[in-house]
Design a protein around this nucleic acid. Structure first.
Lengths: 242, 242
DNA sequence: CGTTATATTGACAAGCTTCAAACACCGTGG
DNA sequence: CCACGGTGTTTGAAGCTTGTCAATATAACG
């Protein structure tokens, strides 16, 4: 028992021992030596909801792994209209390699903890480790798939379908093994109504109306604004457009 | 002169000599030996507009470079509503590595010429050549940037802004060096009104109305439905939301 | 317990879609 | 040569979904 543990954790920095990014995230590409090197220059930090992590047109000099919480990626038009273009959950990699200027904003949607490292070091490691680049490519391809999935939602679904799709996406994210046959799940919404509206290309009022409709129709229950219980996953899915 | 040419073209397969993908596309990552190997198993083909290249939920066993023309990537809802989630121009790489099942449709929007190679070979080459994977990562990141840009358009812009944005995107794609100070450009639309509607999340009628509005307002001229002349790039840009 | 942020609800207006019809372009065949 | 059908586009009128503005309710917080 102790032997097995030693085999797996020998040379692994304390910081990384229980880190999810080492398993499912990009750090899984690194060998113990690289991990030690990276751990030396990386720092864990906790961020309050609403705090801006990366500003539009700012130069980015650090990348991060999301360890917990939800980060929203947003883009804005000159007159203030805003659109959320991505949500990042643990253990996603946060940052846009190979570009000094960010074209998007990143903001903590909930309380977030990050593991950050300097830009230069991670880009050097990418050059040295093809496996790291491979993981990045895979995550980027997944993000592209998600973005395209949401383009369909934004362009072609009704408000009712958008809200149902959003709830399903969150439910699946909280519990990836969610069986479509099960009827009931329950979770905390990581976003405010305003955020949900920015995510779905709707107004706060329309989001609210669609949620109350789902509530009065008996598909969901809502407590304290944020806690949602889906009482009929099947009926919810049938309203998501698919 | 001839010496210089020889230096550059020695060992380069005839098929690839004048190919744009060798310069700006993924093939630029390959050395002459790899290029010869790939050229042996690749084939050039021409495709008519409207022909489906990759069907939804089909298993993909070949990848391609787009050599000319425009390929539209679409996703559909069960009831037939459709959304274009990407446009691919030369010399884009066409295909979704590391996934056997395609979740999207690819269809020739115009006449298209492709250079195709078997899935297995390209995936082997990716494993062997980090530089190839690097190029793929860069293209994927660019596609992700574009997708997110269009999410803002789909979610937050008005019909008028959407159409203006679309025209600007096409103009910039035809002439990447397009100076915002110049007033006039002219190009062939690679998409029908129906395609434009599917791209912008609108109906054919709304697209048509917005185009005639731009026409009667003197920002553009349209000949034969497809040929567009922008007469005031600045005014068009000011209507794109930005 | 008052104060502020967040969410809900209602009435009305606007924008986009829907449905319908006319128009333009193009190749075919009489 | 012109009538004809086909496809793609434009235009019009009406209706519905969503946005806007305003008021109220609920929750969060000192």
């Amino acid at each position: 028992m102790t032997v097995r543990q030693d085999v797996h954790s020998v040379g692994i920095p304390v910081l990384c021992q229980s880190c999810e990014a080492r398993h499912r995230g990009v750090c899984g590409a690194l060998d113990p030596d690289q991990l030690v090197g990276l751990a030396k220059i990386s720092s864990k930090q906790t961020i309050e909801p609403g705090v801006e992590l990366i500003g539009d047109a700012e130069t980015v000099d650090s990348y991060s792994n999301v360890l917990s919480g939800v980060v929203k990626l947003t883009k804005s038009l000159s007159d203030g209209r805003q659109q959320i273009v991505g949500l990042q959950f643990a253990p996603d990699f946060l940052g846009r390699p190979f570009k000094v200027e960010s074209a998007i904003n990143a903001e903590a949607a909930t309380a977030v903890s990050l593991c950050s490292f300097p830009r230069a070091s991670i880009e050097r490691m990418i050059r040295e480790s093809p496996e790291l680049e491979h993981r990045l490519l895979k995550q980027t391809l997944n993000e592209l798939d998600e973005a395209r999935e949401w383009m369909v939602t934004l362009g072609r679904k009704t408000a009712a379908e958008k809200v149902a799709s959003f709830l399903l996406m969150i439910a699946r994210n909280i519990d990836p093994a969610l069986d479509p046959a099960t009827n009931t799940t329950s979770f905390e919404l990581p976003l405010t109504r305003a955020d949900i509206a920015d995510f779905l290309g709707l107004t706060i009022e329309t989001v609210s109306r669609q949620l109350t409709r789902l509530r009065t129709d008996g598909l969901i229950r809502i407590e304290n604004n944020r806690h949602v219980t889906v009482t009929s996953l099947k009926r919810l899915a049938s309203r998501s457009g698919a």
